[in-house]
Amino acid sequence: MVINVCIGSACHLKGSYDIIKIFEKLISENDMTEKVDVKASFCLGNCVGAVSVRFDEKIYSVQPETAEEFFNSIVRKKVC
């Protein structure tokens, strides 16, 4: 599975860099490197909801503060 984090202008300013780092850390802590990849992506067309994150065909709106919760409730649930 792939988590796409938008790094377009609006998303970058709202914290894409931190979110990518948080996801990378959570993936390695939870031994999920075989199952999940984090990739950056240009504009996902949802600039109003920055930072846009695409996972499992859906676009989510994630902030650095909510990244861990998003990871646990959406990503882990789906993958594990």
Binding site: I7, G8, H12, Y17, D18, I20, C43
Partner: peptide, 30 residues
């Protein structure tokens, strides 16, 4: 230069954009 602009270019060239995350910094997108 530009996310949407790059998406347009990729669509016209008929290929996928590959982002080099190793060039990403906290101040400059990759």
């Amino acid at each position: 230069c530009g996310g949407t602009t790059a998406n347009i270019m990729a669509r016209m060239l008929g290929c996928e954009i590959e982002i080099d995350v190793s060039t990403m910094t906290s101040t400059v997108p990759p």
